[in-house]
């Protein structure tokens, strides 16, 4: 259980991550708002409370790694990395700009702290499995975390990776499914329903936890704690989240996947945070 003070601190950090992200996207004119806002609490929980990382040494071999397989969520990952001191937050002004080192999808060759390049959906989890295998081989106790979209889970490659992780008993692999219920063309339930995720992951031999409120720090951290107590299996934590969380008028709409924020919407959102 978090202390009141800690919870308030984390909440404040998530607020800051959202603000930095929305401002950066507003500056470019357009961007992936829905799927960045849905994972703000998760990223803060990971970077502020869970992951073993050293921002001054991003390639530290003993670090915990994060693969954001839904690579289009890059803006908020960059925001959190900047908040952690991986690079100057001023750099966020250059998101998607000409010659930028912060491209729209996660790029490990350009951004300190990004552990895997992603962008074509479904490929990141395979890479995360590869990382966890490497750690297992080298007897490192580091964890590998991955964030996979609910729509993204329609890619067969995700299930190819899921099978392999179970076979290899990758107990230090924790995958978060950002189950925000929306994809580009509609609600996931209408396009291709993948729910219930926990049942699927269990059928494929994983330890699966369903988190009722994917924006609650207590619930997220408790699930990660539970995962770490459970040996011999990889872990899937299904986060019931809200697409475009805290952006007034856009919450829980699939149209929020990628859109242009007006000045008014930005101000409203920032106030709302």
């Amino acid at each position: 259980m978090l202390t009141e003070e800690r919870r308030a601190f984390l909440t404040q950090r998530a607020r800051q991550a959202r603000a930095l992200t929305l401002e950066a996207i507003y500056r470019v004119g357009r961007g992936h708002i829905g799927g960045t806002m849905s994972i703000a609490e998760l990223l803060i929980a990971l970077y502020d409370d869970v992951m073993r990382v050293d921002p001054s040494n991003p390639s530290w071999p003993e670090r915990d790694r994060l693969v954001v397989s839904k690579g289009h969520a890059a803006p908020i990952v960059y925001a959190v990395l900047a908040m952690k001191g991986y690079f100057d937050p001023k750099l966020l002004d250059t998101l998607n700009a000409n010659g930028t080192t912060l491209p729209s999808h996660c790029d490990m060759r350009k951004v300190p702290g990004i552990d895997m390049t992603a962008g074509s959906l479904g490929q990141g989890l395979s890479a995360a499995v590869g990382m966890a295998l490497a750690n297992q081989m080298d007897h490192r106790d580091s964890y590998v975390y991955a964030i996979v979209g609910d729509g993204e889970s329609q890619e067969g490659q995700v299930w190819e990776a899921v099978m392999l992780a179970a076979q290899r008993k990758l107990e230090h692999l924790i995958v978060f499914v950002d189950d925000n219920g929306c994809q580009v063309d509609g609600f996931t339930g209408d396009i291709l329903n993948m729910r219930p995720f926990d049942q699927k992951y269990r059928a494929f031999g994983w330890h699966a936890i369903y988190v009722e409120d994917g924006h609650s720090f207590d619930q997220i951290l408790d699930a990660i704690h539970q995962a770490k107590q459970t040996p011999d299996r990889p872990h899937a934590i299904i986060l019931n989240t809200v697409k475009a969380k805290h952006v007034p008028g856009a919450e829980n709409t699939y149209q929020s996947h990628c859109f242009s924020l007006t000045r008014e919407q930005l101000d409203n959102s920032l106030r709302n945070l």
Binding site: G122, Q154, E155, G156, V158, W159, M194
Partner: peptide
């Protein structure tokens, strides 16, 4: 093959 599961979905 993941495609099997894509097809199943």
């Amino acid at each position: 093959e993941g495609q099997v599961w894509e097809a199943a979905e």
